[in-house]
Simulated assay, not measured.
Amino acid sequence: MSLDELEVGFFYSNGAYGRTWGVRQLAEIAADAKTGEMIYHYKGIAGTCRRKKGYCSPAEFARWAKHQVVLLENDWKRVGDDTPDN
């Protein structure tokens, strides 16, 4: 994903299958106190990321995030993948 597509509070998936699949919420964008560089803080929500918190550079998060997702019922769905009924 591009940096322009990433927004605080939204959920993203790495698009992997099986045990390596994960969902993270972009929790905060802040400047590193020592370097002044931007840091993305995230919360692991599902899959391999569940119950984990972390941070990384914006570029690292953008590389990891393949899709924006939303929880519908008990299933994570890609945003924008709505298939019209025929």
Score class of each variant (00 low, 15 high):
1 M>G: 09
2 S>K: 13
3 L>W: 03
3 L>Y: 02
5 E>M: 13
5 E>I: 12
6 L>E: 01
7 E>M: 08
7 E>G: 02
9 G>S: 05
10 F>S: 08
10 F>Q: 10
11 F>E: 01
11 F>K: 00
12 Y>F: 08
15 G>Y: 01
15 G>N: 07
16 A>M: 13
17 Y>F: 07
17 Y>W: 08
17 Y>E: 15
18 G>F: 02
19 R>G: 14
19 R>L: 12
20 T>V: 10
20 T>D: 12
20 T>Y: 03
20 T>Q: 09
21 W>R: 14
22 G>E: 12
22 G>F: 00
23 V>E: 01
24 R>W: 01
24 R>H: 02
24 R>F: 00
24 R>S: 01
25 Q>H: 03
25 Q>L: 05
26 L>G: 01
27 A>V: 09
27 A>W: 03
28 E>D: 14
30 A>Q: 12
31 A>W: 00
32 D>Q: 04
33 A>G: 10
34 K>Q: 15
35 T>R: 07
35 T>H: 05
35 T>P: 14
37 E>M: 13
37 E>Y: 07
38 M>N: 15
38 M>Y: 06
41 H>P: 09
41 H>T: 14
41 H>E: 11
41 H>I: 14
41 H>K: 13
42 Y>M: 04
42 Y>L: 06
42 Y>I: 09
44 G>F: 02
44 G>T: 07
45 I>D: 00
45 I>T: 03
46 A>M: 06
46 A>E: 13
47 G>M: 06
48 T>P: 02
48 T>Y: 01
49 C>N: 06
52 K>H: 14
52 K>Q: 15
56 C>Y: 02
56 C>W: 02
56 C>K: 11
57 S>P: 10
58 P>N: 09
59 A>M: 14
59 A>G: 12
61 F>C: 04
61 F>Y: 06
63 R>K: 15
63 R>D: 14
63 R>T: 15
64 W>R: 04
64 W>T: 09
64 W>G: 04
65 A>M: 04
65 A>L: 04
65 A>K: 02
66 K>L: 05
66 K>Q: 12
66 K>W: 00
66 K>D: 05
67 H>D: 10
67 H>R: 09
68 Q>E: 13
68 Q>Y: 01
69 V>W: 00
69 V>L: 03
70 V>K: 07
70 V>C: 05
72 L>A: 08
72 L>F: 04
73 E>G: 12
75 D>E: 11
75 D>Y: 03
76 W>G: 02
77 K>M: 10
78 R>D: 06
78 R>Y: 04
80 G>K: 08
80 G>W: 03
80 G>C: 08
81 D>Y: 02
81 D>C: 07
82 D>Y: 04
83 T>H: 06
84 P>K: 07
85 D>R: 12
86 N>C: 13
86 N>E: 15
86 N>V: 15
86 N>G: 14
